[in-house]
Simulated scan of single mutants.
Amino acid sequence: MTNTVTPSRAKTSAMIASIAEPGQKTASAPFGHALVALAEQDPTVVGLSADLAKYTDMHIFRDRFPERFFQVGMAEQVLLGAAAGMAETGLVPFVSTYSVFAARRAYDFLCLDIAEPNLNVNVVGGLPGLTTGYGPSHQATEDMAIFRGMPNLTIVDPCDSVDIEQAVPQLAAAAGPTYLRLLRGHVPTVLDEYDYTFELGKASVLRGGHDVVLISSGLMTMRALQAATALAAHKVDVAVVHTPTIKPFDAETVLAELNTDRLAVTLENHTIRGGLFETVASAAVLAGVAKRVIPVALPDAFLDAGALPTLHRRYGLDVDSIVATVLDGLA
């Protein structure tokens, strides 16, 4: 379902604040609708939530398949333990909660009940990074850093509704556990304007450019594309490489773009510690690529509460800040 966000609909200070800009093309609840489409074809797909179905778009699945939906209440460890048991019987569970609860409260259950036996459980985490203004208790700014060290776990950081819709069936088909950083509600639709198809484990060069290469994941790919357009007015030609899969990481594609004389910048909606920047940096070191990389990322700190546009400007995730970072790097 595609629509356009009007200024009055773009909530900026609520728990489930939208990242869509006024007038931007969006799709409503792409995860929920993609999961329903998958479940209509695959009777083994089930959904579980820890009292957050409405706020993770799992309610779309719940309303369509109530007999295949399980509400465990505010008990994230039970959520993942139950999903592990279902996966052992041949079901394909998708479980939804906030990223902070999956990463901080239920890590051991995901690690030992699901990842160690390599079960097909798909964890969908709402409010990743700085996508809520409710402060450190709900801002999962370090979720990828926590999860990158877990063996067998695939990590996906989608840019928009296209990524999410195409990722869901591929996550279900993957042999082991997955973690999806969910964008929910009215999610921007961006990648349909590029010759792009989501492929699990692969990065994609969305546009070429001779002066700068921006390597991005998640909603920051949307910002990277906007920044590339803005930088054209400064006579700066910018390439954008989208890396929706953080683990396993497509080092071959990324390093081929990195190993040039262009200015290289990574962009992520995550702390500078343990996310995309350090993934790219470690891949470069292992491959013997000597290259300076400038990070655009959240600081290694507990963030403030407030309205999302204000916070994104404060912490350098907005387009103007990205443009300024690039121009400074070129100076």
Rank of each mutant, 00 (worst) to 15 (best):
D250P: 10
I294G: 03
G329E: 06
R314W: 09
S28I: 14
T178N: 13
T131V: 11
V156Y: 05
V187T: 03
G85P: 14
Y194A: 00
G73S: 13
H234D: 13
V45C: 08
P177L: 03
S8E: 11
H242C: 05
L255K: 07
E116C: 01
A102M: 12
E268F: 11
G274R: 04
E40K: 15
G306Q: 10
P309D: 00
S99F: 06
H186K: 08
T310I: 10
D143T: 10
S28M: 14
H270D: 09
T260F: 15
H210P: 01
M86E: 08
I246L: 15
V319Y: 02
F69Y: 15
T6L: 14
G135F: 13
V241I: 07
L110K: 02
V213P: 04
F69S: 14
L171N: 02
R184M: 06
F65V: 09
F101D: 02
A82T: 15
A224N: 01
T266G: 10
A53L: 02
D163E: 06
P177D: 02
D57A: 10
A307E: 14
P136Q: 12
L298T: 09
T6W: 09
R104I: 04
P93R: 05
G208C: 04
Y55I: 04
A84G: 15
A140Y: 04
H138T: 02
E193T: 10
G208S: 15
G316C: 13
T131R: 03
Y55Q: 12
S49M: 02
A14V: 10
L267D: 05
Q41N: 12
R207I: 03
Q170F: 05
N118R: 14
Q71L: 05
L171Y: 06
N122Y: 08
S49Q: 03
N259Q: 14
S8L: 09
L38P: 03
V95P: 01
Q41M: 12
N122F: 07
L267E: 04
